[in-house]
Design a protein around this nucleic acid. Structure first.
Length: 464
RNA sequence: GCGCCGGUGCCCGAGCGGACCAAGGGAACGGCCUGCAAAGCCGUAAAGCCGCGGGUUCAAAUCCCGCCCGGCGCUCCA
């Protein structure tokens, strides 16, 4: 028992996270198929599991975080064909873009980042076992899972087989060779000009969902703790992953976690609506956007659709600056020296923990952080004894959610000497009570994008 | 149509039966601080009968029923 409660999609309720091994958490989060720019939805999803992982670690649990990269599928093949390149070239390019974008969002690298193409042998082996179990059959186009043979197939989506059948084929035409419209390909027979791997059923490539089963069970083992992903993956992706594992009698995820989608300007983000936003684009717009977007994600519960628009990004940036401002003035006041020594405000840490233990209540946790920030500022105003502890608590709790607090006055470094010179020149003018000279210098700095703040301990500055 | 998740102040967004909490962030306004600012502090608002209509209860934003609206899913999408 971890004391942490998490919503489980399978049972449809918040329930205690009871891990397979005490003190350890095996987490598998579905990663992207790499053939295009990662968008804000990918970022929200990655952030959700990064925060979950960081919090579990903050609680002292030993987490093994696996996030896959799907580097072979129809989209990649189509893109490669369109661009006259190999599938591998396309996949490598977009995987690099993805990983770089995640790093800029301060998403920790997962402990394992398996690629589908590196696990084909395991997938073939898995399909072989499903065949042996009598839960699959071959047709001219590949190997199919017999969905009807899997007990409680629709449990994850909370729908019965007949109900699912009734809407099957609503969007995609049904393959007549299949025994049941719900059956899906475990292995696809090779078509001309497509990459393929040898198999007992002839050359082909992995079918649907099989890569995640092979990799999650292969790396984390049976009965691993948490399987996560966007809630659009509940069906068919996760439902079918689960079916594949169940077909060979293996116990799959103990807990299913799904994050909600994201809207832009009130409507869903989609390419056709023209409101499709990429992570790189968002990050390039403002140096604070990485942290601001994370804060925005944290301010909405992970199971609720979140809103993103320029105004909200701006307000999140302002909030991030308040965090930095606290650190800066604490540093100027010499009140930050005990950071990392373990001293913290236990009332705040306790409230934070209570919020997070309750199904990862990040909005409330963020509220605790800002309440503490408020107390820290007040303590700093009155030079109260506990100011350093409160400041350290803010930094620690924000850090537990992956929000870095930056006390540095210096930006990139370029031009710092000039800025420092102007700041001290202005201070000299102020001491001489030459206000017009001082204000002129402040305007000059402002034109350079630098804001000066006068504190009892002397002037400090930051980039706007 | 079916399943899941939602509809709370100017915007975003907590709360899930009862306590001076209807949190927290942003925006606005007044005051303090400041040479003036910035940062910070204090306070305020006709700001919301918590989507609409019923019901359960001593007590509901919180539970139940119906309706309206939004999002996602219903074969490869976070």
């Amino acid at each position: 028992m971890t004391g942490i409660e998490l919503y489980d999609t399978l049972t449809g309720e918040v329930r205690p996270l009871a891990t397979r091994e005490p003190g350890k958490v095996a987490l598998y989060a579905c990663g992207p198929t790499v053939y295009d720019h990662p968008h804000l939805g990918h970022a929200r999803s990655a952030l959700t599991y990064d925060v979950l992982r960081r919090y579990l670690e903050w609680r002292g649990l030993d987490v093994r975080h696996v996030a896959n990269i799907t580097d072979i599928d129809d989209n990649i093949i189509n893109r490669a064909r369109d661009e006259g390149r190999t599938e591998s070239e396309v996949a490598v390019e977009w995987e690099d873009v993805y990983i770089d974008a995640m790093a800029r969002l301060d998403v920790l690298d997962p402990h394992d980042r398996p690629r589908a193409t590196e696990w084909v042998a395991e997938m073939v082996d898995f399909v072989t076992r499903i065949m042996a179990a009598g839960a699959a059959y071959t047709t001219g186009t590949g190997v199919y899972l017999r969905v009807g043979s899997v007990p409680r197939y629709g449990d994850l989506v909370h729908r019965g087989l007949d109900d699912l059948r009734a809407s099957a084929g609503a969007r995609v035409e049904v393959d007549e060779d299949k025994e049941d419209p719900l059956d899906f390909a475990l292995w696809k027979a090779a078509k001309p000009d497509e990459p393929s791997w040898p198999s007992p059923w002839g050359p082909g490539r992995p079918g649907w969902h099989i890569e995640c089963v092979a990799m999650s069970l292969g790396i984390l083992g049976d009965d691993f703790d948490i399987h996560g992903g966007g809630n659009d993956l509940v069906f068919p992706h996760h439902t079918n992953e689960r079916a594949e594992a169940l077909a060979v009698g293996r116990s799959f995820a103990r807990h299913w976690v799904h994050n909600a989608m994201l809207n832009i300007e009130g409507t869903k983000m989609s390419k056709s609506l023209g409101n499709y936003r990429t992570v790189v684009e968002m990050l390039d717009e403002h140096p604070l956007n990485g942290r601001a977007f994370r804060l925005l994600v944290l301010q909405t519960h992970y199971r609720k659709t979140m809103e993103v628009n320029p105004e909200l990004m701006a307000s999140a940036r302002t909030a991030v600056q308040r965090l930095d401002a606290l650190a800066r003035r604490a540093k100027a006041a010499g009140a930050d020296h005990d950071q990392g020594t373990g001293r913290r405000d236990e009332a705040a840490a306790g409230a934070f923990r209570t919020a997070m233990d309750n199904d990862i209540g990040t909005p409330e946790a963020v509220a605790v952080i800002f309440d503490t920030l408020h107390r820290a500022n007040a303590a700093l105003d009155g030079s109260a004894e506990d100011a350093p502890t409160l400041v350290a608590t803010v930094v620690e709790l924000a850090g537990a959610l992956g929000v870095a607090v930056d006390a540095a006055e210096h930006g990139a470094g370029d031009g710092d000497a000039v800025i420092v010179g102007l700041v001290s020149k202005r201070q000299a003018a102020r001491e001489a009570k030459d206000w017009s000279a001082a204000d002129g210098l402040r305007d000059e700095l402002a034109a350079m994008g630098v804001v000066v703040e006068d504190t009892p301990a002397g002037p400090i500055w930051r980039r706007a």
